[in-house]
Design a protein around this nucleic acid. Sequence first.
DNA 1: ACACATAATGTCATAAATGTCACATAAAAT
DNA 2: ATTTTATGTGACATTTATGACATTATGTGT
Lengths: 190, 190
Amino acid sequence: MSSSDLKSFTSGEIAKFCGVTLRTVIRWIEGGKLKGYKLPGRGNNRVLQEDFLRFLKEHNMPIPDALKQQEHPTVLIVDDELSMAKAIQRVARRAGLRSIIANDGFQAGMLLTEHQPELMTLDLSMPGLDGFEVIKHTRANSAFDKVKIVVISALPEEKLKEALASGANYAFPKPFEQHELLAFFESFIE
Amino acid sequence: MSSSDLKSFTSGEIAKFCGVTLRTVIRWIEGGKLKGYKLPGRGNNRVLQEDFLRFLKEHNMPIPDALKQQEHPTVLIVDDELSMAKAIQRVARRAGLRSIIANDGFQAGMLLTEHQPELMTLDLSMPGLDGFEVIKHTRANSAFDKVKIVVISALPEEKLKEALASGANYAFPKPFEQHELLAFFESFIE
DNA sequence: ACACATAATGTCATAAATGTCACATAAAAT
DNA sequence: ATTTTATGTGACATTTATGACATTATGTGT
């Protein structure tokens, strides 16, 4: 599973990551600046990776490489045409993004929930799967607040605007310009 | 309570959940901080899920997703016709099962992954969603090994058999017999 | 610039909790 | 029955929480 990944760190590990004394980390936790919890023994501290990352971002602190790997900037590519999906995937890979492909709605829902990607590219006109429905369902679920929806469609511009109004974040006409999409993907690498 | 409430964990499992060593878990149990019992062999420890949850709550420790919603067995009802889905839902409710409805493939994939239901009822012939594809994708993902797939379809018997061969566990013709389906659902309550 | 106040962080010693390792053996898988 | 994996145990090593106090930022006013 994805979110059940409950990796946690000790106060000492956090101290090393932040280049700071253990004493200080404990004071951060005590002061409520860093969320943590205590083991039953003598109250040794543990901090969930999730909470630690939030803490780092909140204070604009550098994120250790060891944690960056698990940040997996991932893009879910939803397209019924495999050749088109692979074309998008190549661009994503060039930009340094991990990517996964969904050929139908069921896979899309499964992979979206399982992998919690940062980005989802979406074809609007697929036989048997209405892209607008996907946008609606995704936006109705607060678990996917952070997912950016990128519509890539051959439909006329008014439909693209409609998609944006329904909750999509970006829209590209199809066929897409390689360098445009590449630049867009790269802006997510940071 | 039913026998499924007596799920127990080994010391190693608890160690992983808590991000702590097996040695430490044993010391918690020895010290009476975590309630457990010993197997007759060499005294291997087991902890009831109930006791583990109480322990976690008592110490404000994070609760793994895997333990969160063990309450009622859940059935995911996949059918594009809302009236049919609701009819199945009524039967499920009579049997004491929690249920959720998916009207299309995207929702089905999303809800299946999110709720990890014990049971999924599935219409085979939905416009824009091939039930066989759903079976195939579900069976291809080891995360859903335990999900029982129940086909409820108006297609001829040979198609039902084909579904069973593809990985479905049970098949009912549509329209279904209320009492048959009810009896079937009830067999999952124990 | 300067002195001063204030908060944040570092240092150190110590007791307690947790980790490590090797090994015998139960429990599970084949 | 055999092999593989997981577990309990003891002795020992390492890490941690805590308090009191030293040191270093960070700002504020003159």
